[in-house]
Amino acid sequence: MALFSLTTFVIFHFGLHRTSLSGDLAAGVLWVTLLFAAMLGVNRLFVAEHEQGGFDAFLLAPVDRSALLVAKAAALFAYLVIVELVAVPAFFLLLAGPSPGQALPDLLWILLLADLGVAVVGTLTSALAIQTRARDLIGPLTALPLLIPVVIAGARATEPLLGANGAGAVPLKWAAILGLYDVVFALLSYAVFDFLLED
Protein backbone atom coordinates (compact mmCIF):
# COMPACT_ATOMS: atom_id res chain seq x y z
CA MET A 1 0.00 0.00 0.00
CA ALA A 2 2.87 2.38 0.82
CA LEU A 3 4.57 1.50 -2.44
CA PHE A 4 1.26 2.01 -4.21
CA SER A 5 0.92 5.51 -2.79
CA LEU A 6 4.48 6.37 -3.85
CA THR A 7 3.74 5.19 -7.36
CA THR A 8 0.53 7.20 -7.38
CA PHE A 9 2.43 10.36 -6.44
CA VAL A 10 4.77 9.76 -9.38
CA ILE A 11 1.76 9.21 -11.64
CA PHE A 12 0.18 12.43 -10.41
CA HIS A 13 3.42 14.26 -11.08
CA PHE A 14 3.39 13.17 -14.71
CA GLY A 15 -0.37 13.33 -15.09
CA LEU A 16 -0.59 16.90 -13.82
CA HIS A 17 2.79 17.89 -15.24
CA ARG A 18 3.72 19.96 -12.20
CA THR A 19 6.87 19.86 -10.15
CA SER A 20 5.25 21.14 -6.97
CA LEU A 21 1.70 21.45 -5.76
CA SER A 22 0.05 23.63 -3.17
CA GLY A 23 -3.36 24.53 -1.80
CA ASP A 24 -6.42 22.63 -2.93
CA LEU A 25 -4.62 20.68 -5.63
CA ALA A 26 -2.09 19.37 -3.13
CA ALA A 27 -4.82 18.43 -0.66
CA GLY A 28 -6.78 16.66 -3.39
CA VAL A 29 -3.79 14.64 -4.59
CA LEU A 30 -2.94 13.61 -1.03
CA TRP A 31 -6.48 12.51 -0.15
CA VAL A 32 -7.20 10.69 -3.38
CA THR A 33 -3.95 8.78 -3.09
CA LEU A 34 -4.62 7.81 0.52
CA LEU A 35 -8.19 6.77 -0.29
CA PHE A 36 -7.16 4.47 -3.12
CA ALA A 37 -4.34 3.04 -1.04
CA ALA A 38 -6.91 2.36 1.68
CA MET A 39 -9.10 0.54 -0.87
CA LEU A 40 -6.30 -1.99 -1.37
CA GLY A 41 -6.30 -2.74 2.33
CA VAL A 42 -10.09 -2.86 2.46
CA ASN A 43 -10.16 -5.44 -0.31
CA ARG A 44 -7.73 -7.75 1.48
CA LEU A 45 -9.09 -7.29 4.99
CA PHE A 46 -11.22 -10.41 5.33
CA VAL A 47 -9.74 -12.57 2.57
CA ALA A 48 -7.71 -14.79 4.90
CA GLU A 49 -10.74 -15.44 7.13
CA HIS A 50 -12.89 -16.24 4.14
CA GLU A 51 -10.46 -18.63 2.52
CA GLN A 52 -9.21 -20.42 5.61
CA GLY A 53 -12.41 -20.68 7.60
CA GLY A 54 -11.51 -18.08 10.18
CA PHE A 55 -15.13 -16.95 10.40
CA ASP A 56 -16.25 -20.36 11.69
CA ALA A 57 -13.44 -20.45 14.21
CA PHE A 58 -14.36 -16.97 15.36
CA LEU A 59 -18.02 -17.89 15.77
CA LEU A 60 -16.99 -20.86 17.93
CA ALA A 61 -14.96 -18.64 20.22
CA PRO A 62 -16.79 -17.38 23.32
CA VAL A 63 -16.50 -13.68 22.48
CA ASP A 64 -18.89 -11.01 21.39
CA ARG A 65 -19.29 -10.70 17.64
CA SER A 66 -18.58 -7.00 17.55
CA ALA A 67 -15.10 -7.87 18.87
CA LEU A 68 -14.27 -8.83 15.29
CA LEU A 69 -15.43 -5.42 14.06
CA VAL A 70 -13.30 -3.62 16.63
CA ALA A 71 -10.28 -5.83 15.93
CA LYS A 72 -10.50 -5.50 12.17
CA ALA A 73 -11.11 -1.77 12.30
CA ALA A 74 -8.11 -1.39 14.59
CA ALA A 75 -6.01 -3.44 12.17
CA LEU A 76 -7.11 -1.34 9.23
CA PHE A 77 -6.45 1.83 11.23
CA ALA A 78 -2.92 0.60 11.97
CA TYR A 79 -2.37 -0.17 8.27
CA LEU A 80 -3.50 3.32 7.34
CA VAL A 81 -1.22 4.96 9.90
CA ILE A 82 1.75 2.96 8.60
CA VAL A 83 0.93 3.89 5.03
CA GLU A 84 0.72 7.54 6.00
CA LEU A 85 4.04 7.34 7.84
CA VAL A 86 5.57 6.61 4.46
CA ALA A 87 3.21 8.48 2.16
CA VAL A 88 3.03 11.87 3.91
CA PRO A 89 6.80 12.45 4.11
CA ALA A 90 7.09 11.23 0.54
CA PHE A 91 4.33 13.62 -0.46
CA PHE A 92 6.14 16.61 1.05
CA LEU A 93 9.41 15.42 -0.45
CA LEU A 94 8.16 14.77 -3.96
CA LEU A 95 5.18 16.97 -4.65
CA ALA A 96 4.23 19.54 -2.02
CA GLY A 97 5.77 22.95 -2.51
CA PRO A 98 5.54 24.56 0.96
CA SER A 99 7.69 23.22 3.77
CA PRO A 100 5.79 20.89 6.10
CA GLY A 101 7.00 22.47 9.38
CA GLN A 102 3.94 24.42 10.50
CA ALA A 103 1.36 22.27 8.78
CA LEU A 104 2.39 18.96 10.27
CA PRO A 105 0.64 18.90 13.70
CA ASP A 106 -2.73 19.96 12.30
CA LEU A 107 -2.39 17.66 9.32
CA LEU A 108 -1.66 14.75 11.65
CA TRP A 109 -4.82 15.00 13.74
CA ILE A 110 -7.03 15.50 10.73
CA LEU A 111 -5.47 12.45 9.09
CA LEU A 112 -6.07 10.40 12.24
CA LEU A 113 -9.69 11.55 12.40
CA ALA A 114 -10.20 10.57 8.77
CA ASP A 115 -8.41 7.24 9.28
CA LEU A 116 -10.91 6.38 11.97
CA GLY A 117 -13.82 6.88 9.57
CA VAL A 118 -12.09 5.03 6.74
CA ALA A 119 -11.24 2.14 9.05
CA VAL A 120 -14.81 1.73 10.31
CA VAL A 121 -16.52 2.10 6.93
CA GLY A 122 -13.84 0.00 5.24
CA THR A 123 -14.34 -2.84 7.72
CA LEU A 124 -18.11 -2.75 7.28
CA THR A 125 -18.04 -2.75 3.47
CA SER A 126 -15.27 -5.33 3.39
CA ALA A 127 -17.37 -7.68 5.53
CA LEU A 128 -20.34 -6.93 3.28
CA ALA A 129 -18.42 -7.70 0.10
CA ILE A 130 -16.43 -10.73 1.21
CA GLN A 131 -19.25 -13.22 0.73
CA THR A 132 -20.16 -12.00 -2.74
CA ARG A 133 -18.75 -13.46 -5.91
CA ALA A 134 -17.51 -10.17 -7.27
CA ARG A 135 -15.98 -8.95 -4.03
CA ASP A 136 -13.13 -7.02 -5.65
CA LEU A 137 -15.75 -4.96 -7.43
CA ILE A 138 -18.52 -4.72 -4.84
CA GLY A 139 -16.19 -3.65 -2.04
CA PRO A 140 -14.80 -0.48 -3.64
CA LEU A 141 -18.10 0.29 -5.37
CA THR A 142 -19.82 0.40 -1.99
CA ALA A 143 -16.99 1.94 0.00
CA LEU A 144 -16.05 4.78 -2.34
CA PRO A 145 -19.41 6.62 -2.36
CA LEU A 146 -19.66 6.13 1.41
CA LEU A 147 -16.20 7.64 1.84
CA ILE A 148 -16.72 10.66 -0.38
CA PRO A 149 -17.70 12.86 2.61
CA VAL A 150 -14.38 11.93 4.25
CA VAL A 151 -12.52 13.06 1.17
CA ILE A 152 -14.52 16.28 0.87
CA ALA A 153 -14.13 17.18 4.53
CA GLY A 154 -10.51 16.07 4.69
CA ALA A 155 -9.50 17.93 1.57
CA ARG A 156 -11.31 21.09 2.64
CA ALA A 157 -9.83 20.94 6.14
CA THR A 158 -6.25 20.47 4.97
CA GLU A 159 -6.45 22.81 2.01
CA PRO A 160 -5.32 25.94 3.95
CA LEU A 161 -2.54 23.93 5.60
CA LEU A 162 -0.89 23.34 2.26
CA GLY A 163 -1.21 26.90 1.02
CA ALA A 164 1.59 28.30 -1.09
CA ASN A 165 2.47 31.03 1.42
CA GLY A 166 2.55 29.14 4.68
CA ALA A 167 -0.08 27.24 6.58
CA GLY A 168 -3.38 28.83 7.49
CA ALA A 169 -5.77 27.78 10.23
CA VAL A 170 -7.78 24.57 9.97
CA PRO A 171 -11.46 25.25 9.25
CA LEU A 172 -13.06 23.66 12.27
CA LYS A 173 -16.38 23.14 10.50
CA TRP A 174 -14.90 20.50 8.25
CA ALA A 175 -13.08 18.83 11.12
CA ALA A 176 -16.41 18.70 12.94
CA ILE A 177 -18.04 17.03 9.93
CA LEU A 178 -15.28 14.42 9.96
CA GLY A 179 -15.89 13.80 13.66
CA LEU A 180 -19.65 13.53 13.15
CA TYR A 181 -19.10 11.09 10.30
CA ASP A 182 -16.84 8.94 12.48
CA VAL A 183 -19.33 8.82 15.34
CA VAL A 184 -22.35 8.03 13.16
CA PHE A 185 -20.66 5.27 11.22
CA ALA A 186 -19.00 3.75 14.28
CA LEU A 187 -22.40 3.41 15.97
CA LEU A 188 -24.03 2.17 12.77
CA SER A 189 -21.38 -0.47 12.11
CA TYR A 190 -21.60 -1.62 15.69
CA ALA A 191 -25.35 -2.02 15.28
CA VAL A 192 -25.41 -3.94 12.00
CA PHE A 193 -22.13 -5.88 12.04
CA ASP A 194 -23.59 -8.86 13.91
CA PHE A 195 -25.88 -9.65 11.00
CA LEU A 196 -22.95 -10.08 8.63
CA LEU A 197 -21.56 -12.98 10.65
CA GLU A 198 -24.52 -15.25 11.34
CA ASP A 199 -24.20 -18.52 9.54
Binding site: L124, L128, Q131, T132, T142, L146, L188, S189, A191, V192, F195, L196, E198
Partner: peptide, 10 residues
Protein backbone atom coordinates in the same frame (compact mmCIF):
# COMPACT_ATOMS: atom_id res chain seq x y z
CA UNK B 1 -29.59 -10.18 5.21
CA UNK B 2 -26.66 -8.51 3.46
CA UNK B 3 -28.98 -6.37 1.36
CA UNK B 4 -30.66 -5.20 4.57
CA UNK B 5 -27.34 -4.27 6.14
CA UNK B 6 -26.54 -2.31 3.00
CA UNK B 7 -29.94 -0.61 3.00
CA UNK B 8 -29.56 0.46 6.64
CA UNK B 9 -26.05 1.83 6.13
CA UNK B 10 -27.01 3.66 2.97
Amino acid sequence: RYASVFAITA
